[in-house]
Each structure stands twice: as C-alpha cells, then as structure tokens.
Amino acid sequence: MSCQYHPGAETLLKYASGAIGGLHNVMLKLHCDVCPSCANHVAELEGIGGQYLNKLEGLPLAENAFEQLMSRIESEPQLSTSAGTAAEINNSNDPTKRTSDTDAPVANDYLHILEQILLKGTSKGLNWHWRTKRFAEIPLPTNDDSFDGKLIYFKKGMKVPQHTHRDKEYTLVLSGAFSDDKGTYRRGDYVSNSRLDEHAPIAESDCICFAVTTEPLKFTGTFGPVLNWFFN
C-alpha cells in the first residue's frame, strides 16, 4: 500500500540539495524507499543539482589527480565490479541513495536496523528499554547536538498523553499504525509536528516508529510535569 503522508516540498528540496543530514536524512531516505511518488519527486529535484553542476566553471585539479585516483582504485578492494548487475548487489550500497559506509558512520549504523523493520518487518533482537508495560524505546545516539533520535514501540491501544513539541518532531512509521485527531498513520508515513500542534496519538496496532526531535517533547496535560520527567 502506498504512503498517505509525505514530507512537504521544502523538506524534499532541502533533502535533494543536501541541506538535511544525520538522522533526519536517514528518515527521508527510508520514506523514499517505500514511497515511489516522493522518490520520483526527489529524483526530479536532484536534476536541478545536476544542472547546477553542469554549469559550474571547473576549478583546476592537482596535476597528478587522475594517476592518484587510479592508484587508489587499484589499491583499495573492489566492492562491486562489472561482473555483477545492480540487482545482485545489495541495493543499500548505491552511492546516490546513501552516504558512504566507511569510517565510523554514525547515522548509517542504524540504517540497516531501520531498513529491516520497515522493509522486512523484522525487529527481533532489539534491546528495547521498557518505560511502561506498553511503551518502549531505544535511543539512537547522533553526533548532531541539535537532533535527538529514538526508536519507539507502542503496544496496541497505548495512548500517549497529550503533548506538544518544544520544537519539531518528525516521525516515520516503520511498522503498525497510530492515529491522532488528524488522521491514521501507517507504515512508511512521514509525520511532522511543530510546537504549534498538540496531539495525543494512540496505537492502532503494535507500532514501531522512528522519531527525530529537535527538542524533547513536552507533556501538557494535568500530569504533564510528572510525565515530562518520566518520558525524557
């Protein structure tokens, strides 16, 4: 089933032009993996980048740059060669779809786990931190101070107390579904909430979400202060 909720044009523009990094970038990549419509929009926007590159006046490279390049290619192990077709090679190696997989990547460490849940529906072996009987999470460390990432598990019927966001929260449904007063969000749906939105989501089925916030969420109901302490 295709996704119903998508990132807006500006988010896709920022993503296509490389202005979104870290976990938010991972989230948008995952959404595009399951949303052909957004993947096509991004590809078209990336065309602006290609046109920009085409028109750029080049800067001279070091004299032996090509020789240096060839010797690096020859000395580094081949990951893929002409012998394999694209289909035979793990698609996640595609350099246009993800940033490099070498040298201590932070965000990409999680990419594999998140892909497994989203694409294959497998979430076994994850070290959930149970916060209540029906709610668990796994913090996703990021080297970007301005973002906080979490994997969240809600059991069916779990109602998250009414809350607002101090800044922005982006959520991608990896499996299951949840709803709030604005709609029902299913696998692949991308939801963004700003500090203006107050909502009380409820899990329609066992649900795993990937959430990225610029600030921790803030509970606003009667028990808000207690919950703020508890959840953060």
Binding site: G18, G21, G47, G49, Y52, L53, N54, T96
Partner: peptide, 23 residues
Amino acid sequence: GQVSTWIYTIARNKKLDYFRKTN
C-alpha cells in the same frame, strides 16, 4: 537521466558524509 545529476548526488552524499565524520 543525466550523468551530471548522478554525479551530483554522489558528490552531495560525500559532502554530507564528510560533515558527519567531522561533526
């Protein structure tokens, strides 16, 4: 499509990767 677009996306991702590694 365009080869320039393909190379652009690789270059863009290398830049993001560099930013991530160097924080």
